[in-house]
């Protein structure tokens, strides 16, 4: 069952899912001289939220929807959640059918997200982050249906794992989208503090200023999750692709992405 504490736990940058090692493209943007100060960091975060943030949040929400089918946020708040779909009930025929349906949806989401991630480096990064998150999810919620994720060699995409993990934690679809959107800005903001030596208070103030946009992005993503996978948001950012492929060629880098 969802509680505010569980939402905070999953969204916390200290949740052990490897976020500290990723700058969300900021390291390359800094190296290119495109982000140098608070103002350019804010523009970076706003653009990232509206593109990668929206797409990631929508796919996390869609994966959550697959894990918690036919349950609205209001019903979930009343107490039922994805953990009900546990291994313990997997022997029941309806649970098996549900697992198969979930596998199909997740596989479809996986290829749809690939098609939204033109840069191969970003596909790899998303799958590596998914793998790290899955390690945490399996350790914490061993009964959650992570086994329905597609068995891609590099791991499942991070938003898909996040959707299942949030469902296991009993979070609502909107909470799930919020965790995803929030993570895309806070990770890069924290990298900004480390890379540019920015005043951490001012960076936090900047994040406070982005909170409405973050909530709005999450709400849009949660609504979009009812659309068929091919119609989920596909917001593109040419520089994100370009930066990612430049970054991947560096011999010396501080962040994994």
């Amino acid at each position: 069952m969802a509680t505010p504490s569980l939402l905070l736990l999953v969204a916390d940058g200290r949740f052990p899912a490897g976020a500290h090692a990723h700058s969300g493209g900021l390291e390359a943007a800094v190296a290119a001289g495109r982000v140098t100060d608070l103002a350019s960091l804010e523009a970076f975060l706003a653009g990232r939220l509206a593109t990668a943030g929206l797409v990631g949040a929508a796919f996390a929400a869609a994966a959550h929807r697959a894990a918690v089918p036919g349950i609205t946020d209001a019903d979930e708040a009343a107490g039922s959640a994805g953990v009900a779909e546990s291994a313990g009930s997997a022997r029941r025929p309806d649970a098996l059918a549900r697992s198969a349906a979930r596998s199909r949806t997740l596989a479809q989401l996986d290829v749809e997200l690939d098609a939204r991630t033109a840069a191969p480096t970003l596909r790899t990064v998303s799958r590596r982050q998914g793998r790290a998150l899955l390690r945490a999810g399996r350790a914490i919620w061993p009964d959650a249906p992570f086994g329905d994720l597609p068995a891609s060699p590099g791991g499942a995409h991070q938003p898909l794992v996040l959707g299942l993990l949030c469902a296991a934690a009993g979070l609502s679809r909107l909470d799930t989208a919020t965790v995803a959107a929030y993570g895309t800005v806070t990770g890069a903001a924290s990298a900004g503090v480390r890379l540019l030596g920015l005043d951490p208070y001012q960076v936090q103030a900047l994040l406070v200023g982005l909170a409405d946009a973050c909530d709005g992005t999450a709400a849009e993503a949660a609504r979009a999750a009812d659309d068929p996978p091919e119609r989920l948001p596909a917001a593109a950012a040419p520089l994100a692709d370009i930066h990612a492929e430049i970054h991947a060629t560096w011999e010396v880098r501080l962040f994994a992405s």
Partner: peptide, 9 residues
């Protein structure tokens, strides 16, 4: 392994 400026983390 890249550590994002946080080797101890």
């Amino acid at each position: 392994v890249e550590t994002g400026c946080c080797p101890h983390t």
